[in-house]
């Protein structure tokens, strides 16, 4: 049981660390969002999984209900992270594109092209 907790925690911390490295490595806001929001979501799932396993194991052996409260609240927390994280990433990306920050080194930007066509021709 201890092994599962350790492995989950190590995987989670590794992906969270990679997400921070991505902030330094990538050139613009969109590519940084890939590392900074999504890799950290995956990492957070695994760190929370370690908490959940810990809570249920301690509840099984000790019978103290405070551990199962910990586990249930961790599950609720990971569900809300999974719902809110993509929404916030999408909001940041949309705001960046609307304030005309162009993706660096992009081979094609169909959103920019379509907006330009709309502006010129009225309707699309």
């Amino acid at each position: 049981m201890g092994a599962i907790i350790w492995i989950a925690a190590i995987i989670g911390v590794t992906f969270n660390a990679l997400g921070s490295v991505a902030l330094l490595r990538f050139p613009d806001v969109y590519t940084r969002l890939h590392g900074a929001t999504k890799a950290t979501t995956f990492g957070s799932i695994f760190t929370t999984l370690a908490v959940i396993v810990y809570g249920f194991v301690r509840w099984y052996y000790d019978g103290n209900p405070k551990y199962v409260i910990l586990a249930v609240h961790a599950i609720v927390a990971v569900v809300f992270v999974l719902i809110t994280n993509p929404v916030s990433a999408h909001a940041i990306a949309r705001a960046a594109h609307r304030s005309e920050i162009m993706p660096v080194r992009a081979v094609v930007d169909e959103l920019f092209n379509d907006n330009l066509a709309k502006k010129r021709g009225g309707t699309k």
């Binding site: 490595r25 990538f26 590392g35 080194r105 081979v107």
Partner: peptide, 20 residues
């Protein structure tokens, strides 16, 4: 996809595009 992006963090091999 996480493992794929983790590799791209190290190699820096990106080819970004906004597609529809």
């Amino acid at each position: 996809a996480n493992i794929d992006v983790a590799m791209r963090v190290f190699t820096g091999k990106i080819n970004p595009a906004i597609v529809k």
